[in-house]
């Protein structure tokens, strides 16, 4: 029986077929992760493709210290977060209406009201869009921990490996991110 380890070794030697076998079971998850970061199918597709190409080219740097899936998530997260930051920098130079995440320590700017109707919120599609919009307004590092923990189900240790930070940092960042998300969500829902 061919193991993941065998496939990794053969992929490191440049065998594309072995690499395709290796990543076959991760394609859906990596695409989902990219979709959570990028919030649209087209970008998610491009970022996920980019993830696998980069993984293939840099597989030699994978030393097996973490699970292969975690390492792939790290590659995907880096690609998506770099792209998000690059776009934010570009937008901030041309617009003063850029939505900012609401945070006590920061200046709160007027955020365009993208709230769908209350009835529509009960439609799963509308809710998904709404959640994606809220995530989109958060700082990339806050968005990342919420996506990795609450939407992808990674452990604190795995998130630390993906984002290259300590478990303590994951813990505090997640706490802050969830509070910000909750505040924005509740504020718009007028819940207690």
């Amino acid at each position: 029986m061919i193991t993941e380890r065998d496939l990794i070794l053969r992929s490191k030697l440049g065998e594309t077929q072995a690499f395709e076998e290796l990543v076959a079971e991760y394609q859906g998850k990596v695409y989902t992760l990219c979709f959570r970061y990028m919030a649209n199918e087209e970008d998610a597709y491009d970022m996920a493709q980019e993830t696998f190409i980069k993984a293939f080219n840099s597989l030699k740097s994978f030393q097996g210290k973490s699970r292969f899936g975690t390492w792939l998530y790290r590659v995907a997260s880096n690609i998506c977060l770099d792209e998000i930051r690059r776009r934010k920098r570009r937008i901030s130079t041309i617009s003063i209406h850029q939505p900012l995440e609401t945070d006590d320590s920061e200046v709160e700017k007027e955020i365009a009201d993208v709230r769908p109707t209350v009835e529509a919120l009960y439609e799963q599609k509308e809710l998904s869009l709404y959640i994606q919009t809220l995530l989109d307004q958060m700082k990339p590092e806050h968005r990342a921990v919420i996506i990795l923990r609450d939407m992808m189900g990674l452990s604190y240790d795995e998130i630390g490996e993906v984002l290259d930070c300590s478990t303590g940092t994951v813990k505090s960042r997640l706490s802050r991110a969830r509070t910000i998300f909750r505040n924005n969500f509740i504020k718009r829902e007028h819940l207690p």
Binding site: T16, F19, E20, V23, A24, Q27, G28, Y31, T32, F35, E41, A44, Y45, A48, Q49, F52, I53, F56, Q124, L127, S128, I131, I146, D150, M151, G153, F181, F185
Partner: peptide
């Protein structure tokens, strides 16, 4: 709510596209 978000479907042709790029 975040946990129960529906997973997007992997678009058709993704694996084939990846194969070509590889």
């Amino acid at each position: 709510i975040l946990e129960q978000m529906e997973e997007p479907k992997l678009p058709e042709g993704f694996a084939l596209d990846l194969h070509r790029r590889l």
